[in-house]
Design a binder for these strands. Sequence first.
RNA 1: GCAGCAGUCUGCCUUACCGCGCCGGGAAAACCCGGUGAGGAAAGUCCGGGCAACACAGGGCGCCGUACUUCCUAACAGGAAGGCGCAACUUGGGUAACCGGGUUGCGACAGAGAGUGUCACAGAAACUAUACCGUCUCGGCUUAGCCGAGAUAAGGGUGAAAAAGCGGGGUAAGAGCCCACUCAUCUCGUUGUGAAACGGGAUUGGGAUAAACCUUGCGGGUUGAAAGACCAAAUAAACCCUGCAUCAGGAGCUGCCCGCUCCGGUUUACUGCUUCGGCAGUAAUGGCAGGGAGGGUAGGUCGAUUGAGGCCUGUUGUGAAGCAGGUCCCAGAUAAAUGGUAAGGGUCCUUUUUCGGCAACGAAUUCGGAUACAGAAUCCGGCUUACAGGACUGCUUUUAAA
RNA 2: GGUCGGAUGGCCGAGAGGCUAGGCACGGGUCUGCAAAACCCUCUACACCGGUUCGAAUCCGGUUCCGACCU
Length: 136
Amino acid sequence: MTPPQLQQRYKLPRKNILRSQKAITGLFQPGFFVGSFPLRINYLLHPKTAETPSVQVMFSVSKKRFKKATDRNRIKRLLREVYRLNQHELQVLVLNEEQQLAMALIYTGQELLPFQVLKSSFLQCVQKLKKKLNHA
RNA sequence: GCAGCAGUCUGCCUUACCGCGCCGGGAAAACCCGGUGAGGAAAGUCCGGGCAACACAGGGCGCCGUACUUCCUAACAGGAAGGCGCAACUUGGGUAACCGGGUUGCGACAGAGAGUGUCACAGAAACUAUACCGUCUCGGCUUAGCCGAGAUAAGGGUGAAAAAGCGGGGUAAGAGCCCACUCAUCUCGUUGUGAAACGGGAUUGGGAUAAACCUUGCGGGUUGAAAGACCAAAUAAACCCUGCAUCAGGAGCUGCCCGCUCCGGUUUACUGCUUCGGCAGUAAUGGCAGGGAGGGUAGGUCGAUUGAGGCCUGUUGUGAAGCAGGUCCCAGAUAAAUGGUAAGGGUCCUUUUUCGGCAACGAAUUCGGAUACAGAAUCCGGCUUACAGGACUGCUUUUAAA
RNA sequence: GGUCGGAUGGCCGAGAGGCUAGGCACGGGUCUGCAAAACCCUCUACACCGGUUCGAAUCCGGUUCCGACCU
């Protein structure tokens, strides 16, 4: 019997995806980001509201670097899987605060990379993010 | 059997674990269960429609598009069948040049006897054509030729292009000047719905360019789902303009109107008249409708997935396609779902080895590799472009056997 | 998603059917004691693929890339 909390961890329903234009423009103001090739994470902490979950995320791939829609779809799906399978690392970090976290995963690479590479890169980013948040 | 070309179709599968969107059911909710979920090009946005908003008496001009004929279609610049021209292959005749037949491919294939423009350089001359060399005649000087006046488009040279082609006659030399054949054009007849074809007649016969302007026929109102409709939230009941109403009001009942009940009110300034109660005019205020400018929002619902729909059968037609019957419901997202990881299999290519076959080659085995192009965004009909591999059909070369 | 526009040397930029101007930069030279400025000379181009035409940067299709606008 696995506890229900653990079962939920690998899910990524739609409401955890960041979709408000206001929040997104806020994310892309010059400010807080961590990077580890080929990924970059813009993040923003703001007071918790009742409706939204504590962590919201969005995925972004440049149309200039990847002309074909299939390539962009592929990368975004890979990113989503990487985040989905490793999001518990973050959730532990943020849950104790009275704030919620909004973040954007941006793919900065020039070509398609396999799943395992993206996974290790994401985990590095998370480590960096932990350090930064603890300092603040 | 193999290869090439053309056309049509197809375009990986299975299992395990973890997920995502939509629909239905359960549940207070978290969530659970079931169903379902990319393409032939979803692409480019190159054409044509549906749909929506706005505009709109009718006609002309202009602008844009289009162009052999007939048909198909909701429509088209698409498709089908046919005509003509060009090319390739093949076959028959012929010594050959070439001619006839067949198959396939390609063609922005209307008009240059309506007008305007352009045609660089070269060349004598590039458009009411033209005489540089050459050829010929006559005259003069002089007998070698030169000079002058004319005739001439055969030959030379230039050019992308030089005034129907070729042979003969003719002539001082030449020339459609004349004749035969051929090629255009016009015209008459026959056949065909038609593009055209065939036959007769006529000297009638001096470029190219219309993807230059243009002429003729035909078609087109403009803008596109970020169209457009509604709801919520937020801001600023403010400001400006126009029109209407004019002493009008507010609250409750009600989905709305009518109606009923209750409460409150009949304003302010100026001017004129006055029987001093008021009345009339102007301005302001408040009401309604439309517009402008400015401000706010960046959420949701509809549009939007049943349609010129797919599949099957019959039937009409050479065909594109039409008609009739049956049957099916088959993505609907919106910072944008349709996926990830692992294992196995299929198909194809290359290498090794073995077997079969006269041979081209085929089958098995094994190391390694490949498994395309590409992702719905309002929906349809086309076109164009991209595409690993496979299947089928037609034609042709080649190899082997008979 | 839709509607438009553009692509000419290293950079800017004219040309609109007939040898692709011009400026800046680079390189060489003149001048100078050495430089700068000035003057002279040289090098390097029509995005790609087809078509129309005698001839295409220009006209017409297609491909690629870049940019603008519409809520």
